[in-house]
Structure formats: C-alpha cells, structure tokens
Design a binder for these strands. Structure first.
Lengths: 263, 263
DNA sequence: CGACTTATTGATGCACTTCAAGCGACGTGG
DNA sequence: CCACGTCGCTTGAAGTGCATCAATAAGTCG
C-alpha cells in the first residue's frame, strides 16, 4: 500500500517511479503519537518537518481569553510545517486530535528530494498552495454560510481529501472530532453544533456515530452546502475532473438561505 | 522612492543592490486601474503575475446566493497570483477597491529573478507564506472575536502592512473601503459595521472620515483586540523586533469579553 | 443642481450563545 | 463485579447580539 504522502501528491500530478521511491525515503522516522498531544507549539522553531501519516491533527491558536480556535485539519498526507524553510518561528500550534502516526523529516532531506525531482518540488509547492486555498474556503465558510451548510461543507471537503489518500469506503470515513472540537473549528458553540448535527441527521444527509461518519447521499449533501471542489485543485483523481453537474435530486434547503433566488 | 515591492520584501530580509535592481526590472509594465474593476476572475488562467503597486485590491468569492465575500486585502507590494506557477486555474477572483496601479509581470521574468538571486526566491516564498499566515489570523478573527475587536484587528494589521510600504504617516492611512465592503470582509452586516465603527470612535480609538483612517492611540487599539504581529513575520523593520510590552494605558474592554479572566 | 451612492439611525425578530441539568459510555479502583 | 468519576452527547430555558427591514441624512459626481 502506498504511503499517504505519495497518494496525496499523485492527486495533483503523476510521479515517476524514482520520485515515488525518493518520497518513501523521507518517511524513515515514523512515530506514533497519542490523541490530544501537541506536536508543535506557537513560537517553536522546529528543526524537522512533520508529516501526518495517519490520524487527524490540527492547526490551532489560543486566544488570550482562553478559547481555542482550530484553523485547519491535518489528515494523512498533510505537512505540518513546510514553512520551516523561510519562517523562523511558528505563528500557531499543531496538535493531534486522534492517535496519529507522524513522520519526522529532516529539512535537508526535503530539500534534496525537491532538488532531485522537479515533480517533487512542484508537488510540495502545490501542497502549500492548496493549504492556502482551503484556508480561503474556510474563511468564506465561517463568514458566509449558515451553521448547517458550514458543517456540511467541512464534511464534503474531508470526504474528498480523505478519498485521495484512501481513507474512505462507501462514503464513510473515520471522523474523530468531538462536537466541542467541531465547534472550535466552525466558530460555533458546542451546543449549537449538537443541534445542527441533529438537523443534518434529520434531513437524512449524514450518519455520525462512534466517531465514524457516513454520508448518506453525497450528491444531496454537496448541493445542500453548494460544495464545489475546484479549490482543492485535484486533477489527477476521479474527482478532479467532474463538476458534479448531474442532477442532485431533491435538495433540502437551509432555513437561512431563503432570500436569494439561486434557482 | 523605492517601489512598494522592494520595500515590502525588505521588511523580511535585506536585499543586495543588484537584487533591488532586478526587482525594479520586473515593474516595467504598469497600468492604472479604476476602482471596482476585476483584475482576475474565478476560473481564469492568467498568463502574467499581477502585482499591486498602489491602491487597495481584494481577493473575493461570490457565493451562489449572490453575497460577496472578501477573503484578503491586497495593498501596495502584494502579489495577486503567485500561484500561477503551480495551479492552473484561479479558485477566487481579484478586484480593485480603490483606483490602483498594477504591474503585469511575465511569469518568466519572475522565474528568472528568483533563479538569479536566492534572496529574491526566498522573499517570494516568504510572500506566499505570509499570505497564508494572514489568512489564518483572519480565520481566528472572524471565528473568535467580537465585531469590535474584529475590525480593530484589521485596522491594526493594515497599519503594520502599510507602514512597511511607506503608506502611513502619523498613525494615519488611506482606507478606501466602504462600510459595506468592511462588512463583506468581516462577515457582518453593513448596519452592524456602522454601529461598531461608531463604538470604536466613541471609545476614542479611531477616527475615520472621507476614506482616511487615523488611529488615535495605537497602543490602546492593539490592546483592545489583543493584536500580536508575530504572524506577519516581519523582522527587518522597526516593528518586527519589538513586542509592545510597554504599558498600553487604560484599555477599554469589549463587552463580549467579560467572562474570561485574563488579568 | 439633481441623481446616486454611502452613512446613519430606529424598530423588530430570531438565531445563536450561555447556563444548567440529565444521560450514556467508558475506565478505574475498591 | 459494581460504585464511582469523567467525558462527551443531548436537551431545555432564557437572554441577547446581530441581521433584517426601512427610512432619512449626508456625501459625491455628473
């Protein structure tokens, strides 16, 4: 089974056998990390680059009033701190959400891999650009969508990102976040997350139990939150090409979205 | 007077004379653009890299219900689409807010400049990393802070970013956004932006009239929104070094922030 | 000067937060 | 093995911060 990094990068563009072999060589030092452990703290100057190979981690910041804010979810194949080559100090922290497998990669190894294969260099660059694109979409998500659409959008995004690294079967994937953590991600209260999830369940869109999420109707969930995957910039997967223009079937409308006529 | 790009990059690290000269060479094709014009549309595949040399522009997305969401503000010295080297298609649009001067830079010229000077290459990389860092801070801003703190934080950030490129005098700078545009940036209604601005004025923190913003007490404004500039990763300016640990004087507390004991 | 955009203010309603309590699952130790 | 504590989920009730609607005032540009 290919490692998550290789899988992810091939969602962008094909790699040569030799490049794949080089990538494997980056993942020599892999360690297990328990849930809710910090990998990197704000202000740290990490020596190595960390890569999530299994499990969920997140970027986060703590506001002075104590509330935590989750800025990004890191899933298998995601780099934690590719910025280490330019920025001296971390401006946010990184911690695990579930038990994880994490690779420590010496920055020199990254450097050499990038220099030896232009496709690897471009892929790494792509990683950090997609990180930014996801961030932009999240900004729109929090700023502009209703809680229901917001959470639905997150779940759609994860479906695709996890699909690329082979973590999805039958529109179902491991989703280890507690409702409080979802709240910290979505800028909502945990109580309201609970109610919103109940609503999504009632609409027959999702099933979430014991940390496993099942999307009951992908088409409808995507239509529900107007999910368009262009910002993930996948072009080498079965998802990258199609635009989902096929009929989504009946779409439950979110209450807040009544005013605009998008039909 | 040095151009905004060079000024900005030197906020990160010093450039050689030759590198400065090379950067000047990138800015041969400069054109004026009126306010509220689109520079790049979502879905475009731009040939050149665009750079804002004067005025305000923004990244934005339009949701299917018609509401616009401003994802980033682009000020003099900011690149619009450095991603052009890796991503084929724009996942968001870029438009001017005020009248601007914009440079068209052939991607080959960027490439060559980066290859000829490692400090330029690193600086460009730094640009896109800082873009991401700002985005993360915005996410926290929208997700976690009260409207008053939110707007104050934006104004503090702009103060520093504009300071670097010499657009600030006496804690005062041109701020061309309408209240509706501020609302689109902050995830608020325009009415509420109006009321929040009134509040900030009443607290004696800012003065905003005829598209000119004056910060009446920088220390207090920063303390008011807990502004910490680490995420801008400036280290070569008079701002980059100091942490503002000096006494901020009496700090008006935001109403929403009462519960947590940060004193 | 008149047309149009932007800013301002008031009134109303509800979506969300906050506070609070009960419940189930799980693990630990007596 | 059951008692007990913890943690996450769930639900209720109450308050409010913000959006929405609407109308007027103040700029701004032809």
């Amino acid at each position: 089974m290919p490692n998550a990094l290789t899988q992810k990068l091939e969602g962008f563009e094909p790699l040569t056998d030799h490049a794949r072999w080089t990538l494997d060589g980056l993942l020599l030092k892999v360690r297990p990390v328990g849930a809710r452990r910090d990998l990197i703290l704000e202000g740290d100057k990490p020596e190595n680059v960390l890569l999530v190979l299994d499990g969920f981690a997140c970027r986060y910041k703590i506001l002075p009033n104590g509330q935590r804010h989750i800025i990004a979810l890191l899933v298998p194949g995601d780099f934690c701190n590719l910025n280490v080559f330019v920025l001296d100090e971390m401006d946010h922290a990184i911690g695990t959400l579930s038990p994880c497998k994490v690779a420590d990669i010496p920055r020199r190894a990254i450097d050499e891999a990038a220099k030896s294969h232009s496709c690897i260099a471009r892929s790494f660059w792509w990683c950090s650009l997609v990180d930014g694109a996801v961030l932009r979409e999240w900004l729109v998500n929090i700023g502009g969508r209703s809680p229901g659409q917001r959470i639905a959008h997150l779940l759609c995004e994860l479906l695709m990102r996890l699909e690329v690294v082979g973590r999805v079967t039958d529109d179902s994937y491991a989703f280890p976040l507690t409702q409080t953590e979802i709240a910290e991600t979505m800028g909502l209260s945990d109580v309201h997350v609970n109610r919103t999830l109940r609503e999504l369940r009632a609409l027959g869109l999702i099933h979430l139990k014991r940390r496993v999420l099942t999307i009951l109707n992908v088409q409808r969930l995507k239509a529900f939150c107007n999910f368009t995957p262009n910002y993930l910039h996948l072009r080498n997967t079965r998802w990258g090409e199609r635009q989902d223009t096929s009929g989504p079937g009946p779409v439950p409308r979110d209450t807040r979205d009544v005013r605009a006529g998008q039909d």
